[in-house]
Design a protein around this nucleic acid. Sequence first.
DNA 1: CTCCCGATAT
DNA 2: ATATCAGGAG
Length: 213
Amino acid sequence: MRDREKIHEILRILKETYSDAKIALRFENPLQLLVATILSAQCTDERVNQVTSELFKKYPDVRAFAEADLEELAQDIRPTGFYQQKAKYIKEACRILAEKYGGEVPKSMEALLELPGVARKTANIVLANAYGIVDGIPVDTHVRRLAHRLGLSQEKDPNKIEKDLMDLIPREDWAVIPYVLQAHGRKICTARKPKCEKCPVKDLCPSAKEYLA
DNA sequence: CTCCCGATAT
DNA sequence: ATATCAGGAG
């Protein structure tokens, strides 16, 4: 089997195995998704949901975040880690949303990338899950790790990994593939002790042997 | 490249 | 003790 065929077979099996995979962050509108995604940096989605359930009651809209007391906001999101940085990002991003975008979350990659704390990964998440706009593939730590192990990309830079994935994966799969990889990454292909013996693609995976030894 | 950084698994 | 968790900025 050629490499490209092997890769498509791997992705087919993973899609089938994790057919119900979808976003795990809880949100009710684009702003909530934006905030939740900023908070999700180096933090489990479960903890983000725990924090946001109270956070979104206290800060119901863009203005509430934009006018928030920075120290208080930082304490409100403390359990997610990097809380001082994230508080600044959220407050400043919401100030820009209020000033330039009428309090709405913009629907373009270009506009989203101008917000502090927002790069392609976060922008892709927001565009796809709030607006159904799929122009890229969010590359997070799970996607990056699995892309390497499965032989989908050898690049380190997330933007280059994204380009490799966009080249390999048909566009209609761009929306689901990050959730499929995330699900597989959490259950089987974990960062530390991957459970290769239980992996549905172990016979196709170029990295399985080194972990099965 | 380093820094931001709490909570949990190993 | 240490690595890791839906990253991004300087």
